[in-house]
Design a protein around this nucleic acid. Structure first.
Lengths: 226, 226
DNA sequence: TTATAATGATAGTAATACTATCGTTAAAAA
DNA sequence: TTTTTAACGATAGTATTACTATCATTATAA
């Protein structure tokens, strides 16, 4: 048995549903690989078209511009992560263990499942680390938000916030702590690999140390709450 | 008496020192206002030249490209902040009070001192919040780092890390906690104003609540350390 | 069998991100 | 004071980016 995970995407993010055709799936697959390779700034629809073997106009039939494509990919990632969390914390009754699992999922390198799918989660994870915040750090964030583009991120944050409150109902900042964990799982990873002076993690065993830091941060805050 | 604060800038960031001429100072002043107004993506040297009343080529004599200008501005900000911290924590003996002061300085809206200077710190603070991380979230981060472009950020982080250790010598993650405070002071501010569902801060008294959150996060971590 | 929809191929445009040249002006050195 | 140098303004030019438009072809569905 093999069941395909389907993530519901905001229709305003695309012109034609990329999951509905072979070309669309190629766009998703190759855009992840190309953004990973050259970075979001140097990524263009022309280069993407060349990789795929189609034309620029072909890409524009699916996505209005590269910003919407980035928002699409980040939304997909948040949706996917929320599913991973709900799957892996299912029937864990102890909220603290649940929260530890969440931190582990956020901070661990994603390992590949099947390469058959059209999105490589492991590369996408790296993209989220390096480019993810560019999806909302823009002048149009207000309009994008009105169109619900960040709902998957908010939903994930709400899920984590709820688990935090399960651990400690009296904690006063569940949502801010949730967004802090999520952002720091990515930023500290980026710093560790690119600006190590900003972290306390060595080159070896790095991931474990990042997880330990996040656990320490979160559980100290919760234990401290009255 | 009026003493002008001079921040030493990495010479590799510019082609001609912008602080050495009137045009250079205008470039700094107007770039802050233009980036604040249109955002870094829509900001171009052509528009900047028009604002100043010079030509595109005139700007290119000072800065190679807009990325280096952004790195220049962020470096300036980190240097300025480090000075603010050293100034305002001077002769405070209690490390905890010092750390609280640091958090306050990081998370407070910067109010204007004199408008005579060529950099508006209050607008620059807003730019750091919205655009700051784009200075290092690039493919060239490694090369930029080799050229010491991020030294001011690292220095600031080291200063904060040292104060953290003064508070609690046994705490294991002073640098990661320092970079977490700095990043979160900015990100939570951005979320509060643009994606409020990611925070627990209301529209009123927002700044105080953000400071309270950061204090709670930091001191819980330190008190928790053995 | 005929519509309809998706794609490929090609063209074109305005803006961006530069580089190069040249004449003028203003300040510093001789 | 004259001469040299440095900075600036003005203009031009190029490759790339970020699109939009058109039309022929192919595959699918009515």
């Amino acid at each position: 048995m093999k069941l395909q995970l389907q993530i519901t995407m905001n229709e305003a993010l695309y012109l034609r549903d990329p999951e509905s055709s072979e070309l669309g799936k190629k766009i998703l697959k190759q855009s992840v690989e190309l953004i990973y390779k050259v970075g979001f700034e140097a990524f263009t629809f022309k280069k993407l078209a060349e990789e795929i073997g189609t034309t620029e106009a072909g890409i524009y039939r699916y996505f209005e511009n590269k910003h919407k494509l980035l928002v699409y990919l980040t939304s997909w990632y948040w949706g996917w992560l929320e599913f991973q969390i709900s799957f892996h914390t299912n029937n864990i009754s102890d909220a603290s263990i649940k929260l530890k699992k969440v931190i582990h999922l956020l901070a661990s390198t994603v390992e590949e499942h099947e390469d058959t799918k059209y999105i490589n989660e492991s590369l996408l994870h790296q993209i989220i680390i390096s480019e993810g915040s560019k999806a909302y750090l823009t002048k149009q964030v207000g309009e994008d938000n009105k169109q619900q583009f960040f709902k998957p991120y908010k939903d994930l944050c709400a899920v984590v916030g709820t688990i935090i409150l399960e651990c400690k109902p009296s904690y006063k900042y569940p949502k801010s702590l949730a967004s802090t964990i999520i952002e720091m799982a990515h930023f500290q990873n980026f710093f560790m690999n690119n600006l190590p002076a900003l972290t306390d993690f060595g080159v070896t065993k790095q991931e474990d140390e990042l997880i330990a830091f996040l656990n320490d941060l979160v559980f100290a805050s919760l234990e401290n709450a009255k």
